[in-house]
Structure formats: structure tokens, C-alpha cells
Design a protein around this nucleic acid. Sequence first.
DNA 1: AATGAATGAGTCTTCATTCAT
DNA 2: GATGAATGAAGACTCATTCAT
Lengths: 200, 200, 200, 200
Amino acid sequence: MPKGIPLTNEDRELRRSEIAHAAADLIFEKGFTETSVNQIAKAAGIGKSTLYDFFSNKDEIILYLMEKFLIEVTSRAKAIIAGEGSVIERLRRVMQMHLEFLLRNKAFILKLTLETQRLSIENQKIYQVKRYAYQDLLIELIEQGIADGSFRQIDSGMLMKTLLAAMSPVVYTSRPVGTPQEMLDKTLNLILEGAKTSDS
Amino acid sequence: MPKGIPLTNEDRELRRSEIAHAAADLIFEKGFTETSVNQIAKAAGIGKSTLYDFFSNKDEIILYLMEKFLIEVTSRAKAIIAGEGSVIERLRRVMQMHLEFLLRNKAFILKLTLETQRLSIENQKIYQVKRYAYQDLLIELIEQGIADGSFRQIDSGMLMKTLLAAMSPVVYTSRPVGTPQEMLDKTLNLILEGAKTSDS
Amino acid sequence: MPKGIPLTNEDRELRRSEIAHAAADLIFEKGFTETSVNQIAKAAGIGKSTLYDFFSNKDEIILYLMEKFLIEVTSRAKAIIAGEGSVIERLRRVMQMHLEFLLRNKAFILKLTLETQRLSIENQKIYQVKRYAYQDLLIELIEQGIADGSFRQIDSGMLMKTLLAAMSPVVYTSRPVGTPQEMLDKTLNLILEGAKTSDS
Amino acid sequence: MPKGIPLTNEDRELRRSEIAHAAADLIFEKGFTETSVNQIAKAAGIGKSTLYDFFSNKDEIILYLMEKFLIEVTSRAKAIIAGEGSVIERLRRVMQMHLEFLLRNKAFILKLTLETQRLSIENQKIYQVKRYAYQDLLIELIEQGIADGSFRQIDSGMLMKTLLAAMSPVVYTSRPVGTPQEMLDKTLNLILEGAKTSDS
DNA sequence: AATGAATGAGTCTTCATTCAT
DNA sequence: GATGAATGAAGACTCATTCAT
């Protein structure tokens, strides 16, 4: 609104965030391709081309959201992992946090992952690197668990993949068997039980 | 190819299958929305409008593929479930068959499931019913396992969901930890172990 | 159906007529552009390309129908005009015959006239010449009427045009004020009354 | 033309009018179905999609034109009917105004009426209501004329229909018998004469 | 002689992006 | 800094016409 006064970096970041989150709601409901730039601008309460002052194209909005998501999740996971408790407890807490994050962000992140395919190869790589950072945190934790005997000799990468993949039905199912929280508990009981040492 | 002679139902079905599988390749690579009817026709080696002689619209191609997939998978699952072996063995065999099917069909089925969101509500329902039929087969088998003491008192629906969701990283990961077969084995060891009775 | 036996000219004409009349029904309901060659062929109970053995393109079907219509109407008008009765009586009889013809042919002729615009200039000319032949018959009769004192000194061309134009609401109106027959009578009473000599 | 500034309602209306009239020329020459949106846009000197900023689809262009035409003609007719002069004089003046309007609007309105059939049923109804409003004005005037003895006991609806239908050859004939003005005069002399009381 | 499978040109419509104000 | 008017490229789909059988 104020004309001629340059935005501070902080302001700029705030606006980007506002716009992106307005977009997130729409993308969650209809998918990325089905959401038009016009609709995003309207939902954000700005003009169509103002949007282009903050994001140089539509893809960047997705990229921004995925990045924010991963940075946040990764930093929270770090805090949990560095904290107290047994490996299994901490792994549960990480998945718990992950679930809450998905629910709070309207679970649209999983859709985003799908939309990722539409991005240019370069943009996909950028996103991949950040995803790996998060995944590697989990792997590290799992390997701690193997080292300290909480888990048997399993493939840490595969457990990580299975845990993350298992979040999907918790959030997306059309035939829920309980609240998301209950479903997460059941899922973790199942998978983590299978990863335990037989006598633990 | 023959010009004035009506296609037999068999021929027709064959052509539908050919076209659909040409489409499948493209959809697998780029997603449904990003694949144009023109490109599908070109890939199938036919004219755009010939395609419309076999499918009355774009959605029908997806629907056809999903239907074929589910009919086949469901019928094979039935045969396995009705066969010999312990519940856990049969469950493993079903997942094995499922994996092979995914791999043989270029694994694009999982993507299709996601693309489902773009279909009309009615078409989504049609597909949902068939998916449930398959899922219910698995649930039944799992409940047999609970009844005969192979599994502990777990939520059969949640185990089914977790198993199916866990197929995803086996087929899709960009950081594989082995062949798909090895990844499947590791995954099943993990999950089925967690579902066993503690003393089995 | 019989293969290899050439059609006689008569047979050929019969088939043309059958096809054209099947087309007429569809064109009347939906308009020329909105009626597809496929539908016409189906309605005529023949294959799409058989149709092309009898008409070299879609336009020719229209041309054929208009020609038949005008030939028939013109010949009947000739008979009436050459017959007994006062000029006004004969004019009434011609319009009566014209109405019946329109009604019998489902009035689609008026629509045809509209479709005429879509024809090539040459085809339009061909049709125009035949229309003029019919119109000229009416003009002749009207001029007889002026000569024998039935009509006052009016413009015969304009009366002919007005009479023909006035058939339109009789057949097409969405707010009829009686049966077509009654509407024709009222219309003719109006126009022919206005054309009479003041003391006749 | 100005780029980032919202159009005033006035400007918007002006542009709609410009576009619609560019369309009118083409539709008059070739018919509605045969005129493509592309051609209309080109004729209006704008891009194809700019057109869609002013009309949400092709049908709306026709609807707009018909509405404008009927609103204008109806309001002028009202003024004439409320004015001075005998009923017959006023009826003449209305038809005169109608003719001028048709000529000024390139006479394409009559064609539009025929194109009406292609519109959706709902849109046809909308147009019908407005046409009836105009027709009813004429009927009222004619009934005044019957009441005050200017006309004999004729069907007012039929006279209205005949008058309007008789405009068609005045504007459309390929064999004119004078200027449109002269043809109108002849036509009205004919029809109104026929409607008069025998001794007036 | 009769058919319908095959096709490419063309239809309306949408949308990410630019740019003058 | 902010806007929305303008656009061209592209998409799904239709149809008159041809041609091998």
C-alpha cells in the first residue's frame, strides 16, 4: 500500500509467507494445477502482478512452501533428537511432531510432494536435498537405536522410509479407523514393535 | 487398421489396452494433467480423434487403467488368499504379487491413485468402491490371522493401510536401499514382525 | 445391400430421397450445423460413407431438399393458377397449399432458408433461381388480379413478398393465436383485404 | 487500453458494445455458428482472451446484442405510442422506427432471432420475455385502434405478427422493389389498409 | 456396392505471465 | 510499489471427409 517506500527484508519475508499460505489453502483443496494465480492473488488480497513482485513464477510458491515446511520440521526434529528419552521415545515424538505439522498445515504437504513432479529438474533437486537432510536426521536416530540395542539389526533407511510413508494413510484415508492421533499410535505401535529387539 | 470392417469386441479391447498403456507411460513420466490427449494419441501412433473412438474422454483412460489394475490385483489376491500356507505367508505372497504388478505396470498406479483427485466426484466414487473391495480382502485375511493367533490384537484396517502405504517407497524412492524385492522383504519383515504375537 | 449390381437411376433417386428426408427431420429439430453426417447416416439406416455415394457432401443434402421443395410447390402452384376461380380465390388456394406443404414438411423449409447462407455463393445462386421461378408465378397471378380489377394498383412484387413473409409467424410462432389454418385465414383476410379495390 | 487501472463501468460497457458490434458484422455475414471467437476478437482488434474478460462465453455476445436491441426498440416504441396522432399514424411511426433501427444495426437482428435457436433453453427464455414485452406494446396499440374504430374487429395478435414478419422482406430481399423506405410504405399501405374499418 | 475406422483442421475456453499506468 | 488489462500458447474435444477392405 505505501507507495515509494522500499520494503525491508523482514516485511518482504512476511508478505511472501502470507501469500504462500493463502496459496497453500487453495492448493490443498484443489491441487496446484487447478489453482490459478488469479485465485491465489485474490485469496491473498493483492493484485495479480503484485504477486509477481514476491514470487517470480507460480512454481516458486510451491518451492517456498516446501522449503519452509522442511526447514521447520527439520529444526524441530533436531531439537527432539538432541533431547531426553530413549531412542524409541524420541522417534515417537518426532513422528508425533510430524503428524501435528501435517495436520496443522492442512496436510497439503503430501500433495505438494505429488506436485513436485511438475517442477523443473533443477527445482526438484533443490527440494530433494532438503528432504534428504530431514530423512538423514531420522536415520541417525534409528542408528543410535540399533547401536544401543533398542532396535534389532534392521535397515535404518528402510525403517525411515516406512515410517514416513505410513504417515500418509493417517492423514489421507477415506476410511479412518479413529482420530489421526489414534491412527498414528496404532501405526507406530505396529512398526516400532517390529523393529524392536525380540527381547526388549 | 482394417478400414470398413467393424471392430470385434476383442479387437476393440485390444486397442483400448494399447492406447491406455501408451498413455500410462506418459502419465507416469509427467502426470495426468500435464499429459495432453494429443501426446497420448501420438504415442499410441493414432490420430487424436481415433482415440476418442475408444475412450469418450480423457478421464476414461485413467478409469480404464485403474479398473484393469484393480480387477487383476483383486482376482490374484483372492486366489492367493484361498490357497495354502499360514496367514503370514499368504499375506507376504499378496504383497509380493502386488509389488510385481506395480513394477510390471511401470509403477504408475500409485501415481494414478493420486491423480484420482482430479476426476469428477462420481468417477472417484466408482474407483473407491473397487479399491475398497481389494482392501477388504486384505482385512479379511488379517482378521483370520488374528483369529488363529498369528497376529496379536491389532487394528486390521490400520495394518492393511500401513502395508499398502509402505509399498510406495519400495517403488518410488530416489534413494533405494536395494532392489525392490529386497526393499519389500525388509519392509514386510518390519511390519509383519510388529504385528505378530509376542511369542510366535 | 445387393453387391455388384449397379443401381438404376430410379433406385438411386429413391435412395437420395430417403436419405434427404431422414436428414430433414434432424435438421428441423436441431439445425443444419448441429446435425452431424453421422447422425444423418444412422437415421437413414446406412453407413456414413454410403451417404457419400449419394451426396458428394453435406451441403448437397440441403440443396437437394430445397430443390425438391421448390419444384413441387411450383408445380402445384402452376396447377392452381391454371385452374378455375377468381384471382383472389386462387391466391388463397396457393397460400393454403403452401401452408400445407410447410406443415407437412415439418416447416423445416424456413430453417433451410436460413441455412442457405452457409452454402457457397454458386449454390446460393442455383437455389435463388428456383425460388424466383415460384415467386414469379405468384407475381403473375397478382398482376392478373390488378388487370381484372380484383386488386387496386399495388406493387405486385411487394404483395408477393408480404404474403410469403407472413407465412412465417403462422408456422413458427411461440404464441399461437389459433390453429395454423385459422392463423392463415386471419393473415390472408388482412393482407388480401388491403389489396382489394376499395369497392370490391 | 490503460493497463493497471480498473475499468470504470462506463468504459466496460463501451468496450462490450464495441466488441459486440464487431461481432455483429461478422455474424450478419456468416451466421453465429460459422463465426469463430477468434475472428470476432481479431475484428475487434483485441486478443482472444481479452474478449473473455468482457463476455464470459460466446452466447453472451448474442444475448447482449439482442437485449440492447430490444431495450432500445421497446423504449422508443413506448415514447411513440404515448405520443400524439391517430392509432394508425402511431403504428406507422413505430414500424418506421423499427425499420430504421434494423437498417442502422445492419439488419442483423432478424438473423439473430433465427440464431436464437442455438442458445440454451434458459437463454432462449430470457430473450423471449423481452420480445414479448415489445410485441405486447404493439398489441396494446392495435387494440386501442380497434376500440376507437380505426381498425375493424381483427385479431390484434395476428396483425402484430404479420407486421413484424413483413419487415423481413423489406430488409432482406435479394430483389428489392425500391428503397427500404418505399418498400416499408408499400407494405404498411397493404396491411394497414386491410385492417381498417371498411368505411374509414 | 457398402462400410466404419481413421484423421487433421478447427472449436471454444483457460491461464501464467507481462507491462503501461 | 501496486495494479489489473491484455495476450498467446495450449488444452480437450468435434466433425466432415477419405479410403482400405
